[in-house]
Amino acid sequence: MIQLNNIEKYYANKGIKNYVLRLVTTTIKQGEFVSIMGPSGAGKSTLLNIIGMLEEPTYGSYEFLGEDVTSLNERKRIELYRNHIGFVFQAYHLIDEMTVYENIEAPLLYKKVGSSERASRIADLLDRFNIVAKKDLFPNQLSGGQQQLVGIARALAAQPSIILADEPTGNLQSAQAEEIMTLFKKLNQEDGITIIQVTHSEKNAQYGNRILHIADGVVKEDVAVG
């Protein structure tokens, strides 16, 4: 599903190139649950952003679903966001002015899903994540874990084939983190959704089935998890 070939990323500062990623080549198949790990500043977020087409690599090629997406125009990229990719953020990034319900509804509106279909999908998600009672609350009325649940529900609403999550549990306590990870695993195994997450925690990485270790912008290790 994802094919990265010799991806390089550097920031030029006063003529000196500071490499963030060097010759990253890897393949991620449909249905995998990949964790990216490494020390701070290693380039994990940068790699995930490139996979999510939020940033462009300086060099190298990237195919998503067999299509070269290295430099895609806005419209095509947004097509992919609407239909294939869901993002989950460390800081949740819910829209403060919208209720839980509206936050989950937003991507469906962009995808132009009909209103009855919308209602049933949202009801389904609220039900599944046990947040029906919270649907009319605003993000600042929820706990961090609840907010992240909403964040995930929002990512799932458009029924993406892949979820990209940058330290989804970074701001959460371990109990809440476990809940989220279990949810990810379930989504991966039962719904076949591909998941790529960045994490610092070895424990969280164990929920997946593959770990990419990155240091200084280079993939040092690529191990399968039992």
Binding site: I78, R82, I85, P107, Y110
Partner: peptide
Amino acid sequence: GKEVGVRKVMGSLRRQ
């Protein structure tokens, strides 16, 4: 800015 970013990755066009 955050709202804009989030909306964009949810599939909002700049025009919207």
